[in-house]
């Protein structure tokens, strides 16, 4: 029997494979066109529509949008009460992000470096579990936990530590009748809700730091804190940045939590929700919605300049 140098084609699959082998670009094109279309039309398209809306203005009485180009709506962003909203939101997002980072690091570090086998599974379960239950349920639960007649106040009174809560609630800017009506309550719930989004990328980043880096650092005479600041943190920074992008932008855009927990002062997300949903002021809502986009762009630029992505 003489064997041939080539095997016979078995049908369409072989022909297609051959085609893609000869023209590798074709397969790539086929694979990325649908998602690109999705991204282009649905995402960028809606973003463009949003931008367009923000250059319209609203007839203040009838609530009908006037479709003429104007910067008036952007001017409104600079009214004192709207600037308040923006500053309040950015401040909240920044503190929430910082708190998430500080809380998430030890957890992520433990998971990445020490947890093995069942501990690892327990870690993933513990971090992901809160993500499986309804977001609203969690927020309402927190409203009850933090309420004046809720479990935290009850426990504080029972242990004689009620003065701590009272002291906290008398700090200017954090005033409230209870944790549930104080901006501090809003902060706590934000931190709880977004924490997993910080832990997971951090853990992924820490897992990619080889153990030998840490040993090398110790070998060269670094204390553990020196190792943390000069090796671990810089190498985990892309993960920290990724996590902070989540927590920061999610806080910037959220409109449920400040509605349920806190002192009713508006945040950007709530303002957007009420302006477009309730007040029908889509242009101002759109202008407000552009703010987080700009803030995130600035944030990413600063992060890049600080070298956050150098270790990527």
């Amino acid at each position: 029997m003489t064997s041939r140098a080539t095997l016979p084609s078995r049908g369409l699959a072989d022909q297609l494979t051959g085609l893609f082998w000869r023209r590798p670009g074709l397969l790539l094109l086929l694979l990325i066109t649908p998602p690109l279309l999705w991204l282009g039309v649905v995402y960028l398209g809606s973003l463009a529509a949003l931008l367009l809306q923000s250059f319209y203005s609203i007839d203040e009485f009838s609530g009908v949008v006037k479709e003429e180009f104007t910067l008036k709506t952007y001017g409104e962003l600079f009214r004192a009460q709207n600037l308040d909203i923006i500053l309040r939101t950015v401040l909240m997002a920044a503190t929430v992000t910082l708190a998430c980072a500080v809380l998430a690091f030890p957890i992520a570090y433990f998971a990445a470096r020490y947890a093995r086998g069942p501990w690892k599974a327990a870690f993933y379960l513990g971090v992901m579990l809160p993500l499986w239950s309804s977001y609203l349920v969690k927020v309402y639960a927190w409203k009850l936990i933090l309420a004046k007649e809720g479990i935290v106040t009850w426990a504080a009174e029972g242990t004689g530590t009620g003065f701590l809560i009272d002291g906290l609630l008398s700090i200017p800017g954090l005033e409230g009748a209870s944790l549930s009506t104080s901006p501090f309550g809003t902060f706590l719930v934000f931190v709880y809700i977004w924490l997993p989004y910080m832990i997971l990328p951090m853990q992924a980043a820490l897992e990619r730091v080889p153990n030998s880096m840490l040993e090398a650092s110790a070998d060269l005479g670094a204390t553990q804190s020196q190792t943390f600041w000069t090796v671990i943190l810089p190498l985990a920074l892309p993960g920290v940045i990724a996590g902070s992008i989540f927590t920061f932008s999610l806080t910037l855009g959220d409109y449920i939590i400040p509605q349920i927990v806190g002192d009713s002062a508006r945040f950007i997300g709530l303002a957007v929700y009420q302006l477009q949903g309730t007040a029908g002021n889509t242009p101002l809502a759109a202008a407000f919605a552009v703010v987080p986009i700009l803030i995130m762009l600035v944030y990413l630029t600063l992060a890049k300049r600080a070298g956050a992505f150098d270790a990527l």
């Binding site: 080889p210 030998s212 880096m213 040993e215 090398a216 650092s217 110790a218 070998d219 060269l220 005479g221 670094a222 204390t223 090796v231 190498l235």
Partner: peptide, 16 residues
């Protein structure tokens, strides 16, 4: 380790 006057060249070099 960090107080031992001994240094190591690691197998994967472990350069930062």
């Amino acid at each position: 380790p960090h107080l031992r006057n001994v240094n190591t060249v690691f197998q994967d070099y472990a350069l930062f």
